[in-house]
Design a protein around this nucleic acid. Structure first.
Lengths: 165, 165
DNA sequence: CCCCATTGGTTGACATGTCATCCATGGGGG
DNA sequence: CCCCCATGGATGACATGTCAACCAATGGGG
């Protein structure tokens, strides 16, 4: 029998499962797209810029180690490095070397950066509310929290094919 | 009073809302990443390739108009055009001109394309099950379906800043 | 004290996505 | 019939992301 061994017929999705999967994926995608378009149009920041700046404004001195950023955003270091370079070029952040660790480097938010995010944030939250929170009941919010945590949990246990971290 | 007019203090997220939003976003992101990595590693198709091929195999003759594809995937036509060009170059699909409409063009799946997706699909479904369906209870699946539909609905009504479609 | 594997981070080549523009056909009103 | 604009699609320039290789500082064992 020359067939590849463990080829039990895969458990394809039932019609309802398929419907859920497709709806979920489309929702994700559309949500991203809308948020991206809005933030881009109104503030000439990208979602990526925005999330970097959020982290920077969350810490008291607006100063974070690169690797800390990477862990926080769950980005690979390469992507982060490239992105930070662009953000420096646009004056949103700047860098400082790290005295404790000669290899390391700090990222710090500039005044322009702070200005940019403070201008963009209110409209952004407003849209997040309108598209994500407002359509859902309080009960659904609880449910979705639980659901997200479950799925996330299932993946943490799955070191699968994880290059970084 | 020189302040910009309708600047009532934005409704920032409460801690629970923030927790939900961040958990949800991280879940999305991690889910995407895992699926992308797996499919890439095992089949040298990308998620994008995969979803194009799925549409192509869904129709009886494996032949779809470009614009039909675009609507189906919700991609902008430019992205689709570029992507199709690459897929042609890799032999996964080919094209045929459209007799009914001289501007139009058909996309058709090649044997290589069919082979590629048939090889990739089973492992992919398996992973989707493992990461998305299995961790959730039947009740949660129902809830998530409802939730996704709600959010999606809220966005359909929002023609917002939609360049295409 | 030195060697060397690890770690923090950058770089270059390349794949992918976006935006604006272009081009050819199609399909009506004048 | 012809003009003109809407439509289907391609293209080029550029922003962004990924992968693999690289480099310099670190920090332990021998």
């Amino acid at each position: 029998m020359p067939t590849t061994p463990p080829q039990t017929e895969p458990r394809w999705l039932t019609p309802e499962e398929q419907h859920l999967w497709r709806t979920f994926m489309r929702m994700r995608q559309e949500l991203d797209a809308q948020l991206a378009r809005q933030i881009q149009a109104e503030s000439d920041l990208s979602i990526a810029d925005f999330s970097v700046l959020v982290v920077l404004t969350d810490v008291p001195d607006g100063r974070v180690r690169v690797l800390e950023l990477a862990r926080n955003l769950q980005w690979e270091k390469s992507r982060l490095s490239h992105h930070l370079a662009r953000m420096v070029k646009r004056g949103l952040i700047s860098r400082a070397e790290c005295s404790e660790d000669g290899r390391g480097s700090f990222v710090l938010i500039t005044d322009a950066g702070r200005e940019a995010i403070e201008a963009a944030a209110p409209r952004h939250v407003e849209l997040v509310r309108k598209l994500f929170f407002d359509p859902l009941s309080g009960e659904q919010l609880t449910q979705l929290t639980e659901i997200s945590e479950r799925i996330l949990g299932a993946m943490q246990g799955c070191p699968a094919l994880d290059p970084d971290s």
